[in-house]
Design a protein around this nucleic acid. Sequence first.
DNA 1: TCTTGATATGTTATACTATGACATGTATGA
DNA 2: TCATACATGTCATAGTATAACATATCAAGA
Lengths: 165, 165
Amino acid sequence: MPEMDPNPIGFAKHDHSHCVQDAVAAADRMCRDAGLQLTPVRQRALEILLEEHRALGAYDVLARLSEDGFGSQPPVAYRALDFLTKHGLAHKIERLNAFIACAHPEDRHTPAFLICTSCHAVAEAETDPSHSLMSQIAEATGFRISRAVLEAEGTCPNCLEKEDA
Amino acid sequence: MPEMDPNPIGFAKHDHSHCVQDAVAAADRMCRDAGLQLTPVRQRALEILLEEHRALGAYDVLARLSEDGFGSQPPVAYRALDFLTKHGLAHKIERLNAFIACAHPEDRHTPAFLICTSCHAVAEAETDPSHSLMSQIAEATGFRISRAVLEAEGTCPNCLEKEDA
DNA sequence: TCTTGATATGTTATACTATGACATGTATGA
DNA sequence: TCATACATGTCATAGTATAACATATCAAGA
Ligand SMILES: [Zn+2]
Ligand SMILES: [Zn+2]
Ligand SMILES: [Zn+2]
Ligand SMILES: [Zn+2]
């Protein structure tokens, strides 16, 4: 699987070399435009999430931040992660109590995640909020949604292959 | 269970007097049929969840179990809740780290929850797993789902009304 | 009968996740 | 200059969850 991310909702491998700096550059641009401060801690936290292509616990992020000379106490990580999630640069996976960089922060979306319980990979699928199941239910009941959590656990294509072998 | 919950996906009030014992009786029957042991702790835990019509933290359940003479340590609650969730008698709301009795344990379903951030009510909607958003995504990527988490936060109809007033 | 294995309940201790409260520094604008 | 907002750091604490071990029960098998 060569290119960067030919299948945005899949588990394909990709060339990782440039994708971190590209994403950071995009985040930087976005923050500048929106009048937000992508400070050193926040940027480093984003890089950490991007470097791994999986969900990291707040304390994992904290440990790396601390290694890099930032504060070593939980609020340091939680505040950086709050910033990133609040502004769509990262998401929290509720099922895992963990965080992951957003796969396509360009446009507003309701993220849906596929979590492989075998290899712990996490894929983010972009969904059209208006067509989603939750929206239909909400409409039927008069409920006004502010945030939706869509997460599926199971086995990814790669691990399914290995199982067969 | 016919009129136990006239509006299974809504936030309507209902007569609570008999719904607990009805649900417990049904659970008892189900367990008997399936060769499962609905032991005193487990049954009491289910009753506790049914009595409140909202999501309870494990430690809330534990406190009540302890009052009733059961063990007072976390595993007591977690094990009872594990049993109930494993067998479809209760669900965990990941967003809240809390548990709620299943609104319709009769049939297999993928539960979806509507969580009111104002009054903290939680409604469970029954969804057809095969038609769901997640299933479509999974099918497109070759991912095999074992469990789906569908949770929406927002404002319930009752609270929306109050806001207007 | 005795034994073994599976299941269930209880305990202690510990690990993991998250937030409150306060001090300091820096930039902006009245 | 001063007030305000915001960002970072600290210490302390709250909230959620599991590991590991002891004991009890019951059913199946030697
Ligand atoms: Zn995203
Ligand atoms: Zn996998
Ligand atoms: Zn249910
Ligand atoms: Zn409400």
